[in-house]
Computed example of a mutant assay.
Amino acid sequence: MSRAEAPGSALDTGTHPGAGGAEVRRTPRPLWSLGLLRNEIGTTFRRWRTLVLLAVLAAVPVLIGIAVKIETSGDGGGSGGGGGGGAAFVSQITNNGLFLVFTALAVTLPVFLPLAVGVVAGDAVAGEAHTGTLRYLLVAPAGRTKLLLVKYATTLTFCLVATLVVAASALVTGALLFPVGEVTLLSGTTVPFGEGLLRALAIAAVVALSLVGVAAIGLFVSTLTNSGIAAMATTVGLLIMVQILDTIPQLHAIQPYLFPHHWLSFADVLRDPVYWDRLQQNLGLQALYALVFGSAAWARFTTRDVTV
């Protein structure tokens, strides 16, 4: 018996004794949606592939922290390496371990986090079609639209969990290897450690929201094929291609419209006052990508002929 047919499962919409007929037909729909969402999230985070992705993400801050510790112990200083936005934070790690959170997010956001999200999003629909469980999910009365929304909500949940895993791993590693205390912001203002933690949490939220566009693109690609591997590879390939386009100077006219262009704007949270312009541009762009590719995914999925 499939997960879609199990009695009492998220898809069980049968009547119950003692309830009026009209009420039974109205009440199952929201319960079904919440039940399916819980089931989908549980299924996603029980997969070995998801657990391995989270383990790799958790290992990145540990490796960065150990590398910085070895380098500063060996030469007595060292500003630390690092590329992209991470370079602005690496030199501060030895003074305050909280900066390892900012460094880890800056390092993982351009590559590791979106790749992980692309794998999960690309497999959301195509993986079900490949294993033959998609047609069983579609027999529920809630329909394809709610099923697609549940898939997208599950992917967004993974975005948040993956980001928090990186931040938590970096916070623990930073506290173990380096001193922690008052935080000196990029603008030169010093704030208490508690406020620094709140800003770190806000940055994690911004990073998670920065992955909304990638999740929508991956979900759309997943509706185009019955092969989970093909969907994941296509999503990752698109991500790499857009990242390359964002580094070519001759394409500066279109780069502000590419979804990864404003990803590192989260650093503006570490200013006093906070610079909101780039943050708003980033979140607005992600919302636009979610709307466009989410609509495309809906149009494709609701008209798709599911035969497997």
Score class of each variant (00 low, 15 high):
229 I>L: 13
260 P>M: 07
238 L>Y: 09
249 P>D: 09
258 L>W: 05
291 L>C: 11
268 D>H: 09
263 W>E: 12
229 I>F: 06
236 V>M: 07
266 F>N: 06
279 L>H: 08
250 Q>N: 08
224 L>E: 08
213 G>Q: 07
229 I>A: 14
208 A>D: 00
284 G>Q: 14
247 T>D: 01
235 T>C: 04
266 F>Q: 09
231 A>Q: 02
266 F>M: 13
248 I>L: 15
270 L>R: 07
288 L>I: 11
210 S>G: 14
249 P>M: 05
244 I>A: 13
206 V>Q: 08
269 V>Q: 12
282 N>Q: 15
290 A>D: 05
273 P>I: 04
219 L>A: 10
247 T>K: 06
270 L>M: 14
253 A>V: 11
220 F>E: 12
280 Q>K: 11
289 Y>H: 03
282 N>L: 15
232 M>A: 12
206 V>E: 05
247 T>F: 01
277 D>L: 09
241 M>E: 06
286 Q>T: 09
278 R>K: 11
229 I>N: 09
227 S>Q: 14
268 D>V: 03
241 M>R: 03
232 M>D: 07
288 L>A: 15
254 I>A: 15
225 T>R: 02
254 I>S: 13
205 A>R: 00
213 G>F: 09
243 Q>Y: 05
241 M>C: 05
230 A>N: 11
200 A>D: 12
224 L>G: 14
237 G>F: 03
269 V>K: 04
211 L>H: 09
250 Q>G: 14
261 H>R: 15
234 T>E: 00
290 A>W: 07
223 T>N: 02
203 I>P: 00
217 I>W: 08
284 G>S: 15
231 A>S: 07
246 D>T: 05
260 P>D: 07
291 L>D: 04
291 L>Y: 03
261 H>A: 14
233 A>M: 08
258 L>G: 12
243 Q>E: 10
283 L>D: 04
203 I>L: 05
211 L>Q: 13
291 L>Q: 04
275 Y>A: 11
267 A>Y: 03
281 Q>K: 10
279 L>K: 10
263 W>P: 03
239 L>H: 02
278 R>I: 00
200 A>I: 10
286 Q>M: 08
222 S>K: 04
218 G>W: 00
238 L>Q: 11
231 A>H: 02
281 Q>T: 01
246 D>N: 11
215 A>L: 01
234 T>C: 00
284 G>L: 13
236 V>N: 00
213 G>V: 10
242 V>M: 14
283 L>F: 05
290 A>H: 01
271 R>K: 13
210 S>C: 11
233 A>H: 03
224 L>D: 13
264 L>F: 09
256 P>N: 12
290 A>I: 03
275 Y>Q: 13
226 N>T: 14
212 V>D: 00
281 Q>R: 10
283 L>H: 05
232 M>Q: 14
229 I>D: 11
214 V>H: 06
287 A>I: 12
231 A>L: 03
264 L>V: 06
233 A>W: 02
214 V>D: 09
291 L>W: 03
215 A>F: 01
231 A>C: 03
217 I>F: 12
280 Q>Y: 08
240 I>M: 02
246 D>W: 01
291 L>M: 09
290 A>R: 04
223 T>E: 02
229 I>K: 07
234 T>F: 00
239 L>E: 00
227 S>E: 12
266 F>A: 10
217 I>V: 14
211 L>G: 13
288 L>T: 07
267 A>L: 08
230 A>I: 11
219 L>W: 06
